[in-house]
């Protein structure tokens, strides 16, 4: 029998590069979004959303647990919906969603922009857009 080759290749011998790192990051951020959205929906139901909000408002809160999303509902007290915990969940959701979405856009753009220079420009613009959107979003979450 042939001598067995290593079952697991070391990190620097398996082709792991920026492309594949972002590929796995995109998968992990998708899973994180599921977890955070589920946390927000379950939290909303525990805080009384079942009797105080309609389905659309619950989902809006679920996708971004930010207190302005419960302003126009029958929620009597906004305080439980404005805690640092929910602001942190909203911030995490914003950051993982932005990273996931912007990398998705870059991946699609790479199909059509095939020159190294063009791809570099798209990457720089995407990173600027990602940082800008994240900063604006964090500002809105923490001052509201």
């Amino acid at each position: 029998m042939e001598k067995a080759k290593p079952k697991v290749l070391p990190l620097n011998k398996r082709g792991m590069n920026f492309e594949m790192f972002m590929w796995i990051i995109t998968r992990l951020t998708a899973l994180a979004m599921y977890g955070l959205i589920l946390t927000a929906i379950v939290g909303a139901l525990i805080m009384g959303a079942r009797n105080q909000m309609n389905l659309a408002d619950v989902l809006r809160w679920g996708f971004m647990p930010n207190n302005p999303h419960v302003l126009n509902t029958d929620v009597p007290d906004l305080a439980p919906w404005s805690t640092p915990f929910w602001r942190t969940v909203a911030s995490l959701l914003l950051l993982v969603a932005t990273a996931h979405g912007v990398h998705g856009l870059v991946a699609i753009a790479d199909d059509y922009i095939v020159t190294p220079r063009g791809r570099r420009i798209v990457r720089v613009l995407s990173i600027i857009m990602m940082i800008s959107m994240s900063l604006i979003g964090l500002y809105v979450i923490w001052i509201s």
Binding site: K5, L9, K13, G15, M16, E19, D110, R119
Partner: peptide, 22 residues
């Protein structure tokens, strides 16, 4: 393939910019 010894080289090739990520 358990007999082949160039898995590392091949993975580096398929993981390049125009490879698996596309």
């Amino acid at each position: 393939d358990s007999r082949d010894q160039a898995a590392s080289e091949r993975l580096e090739i398929v993981a390049e910019t125009n490879g698996l990520a596309r």
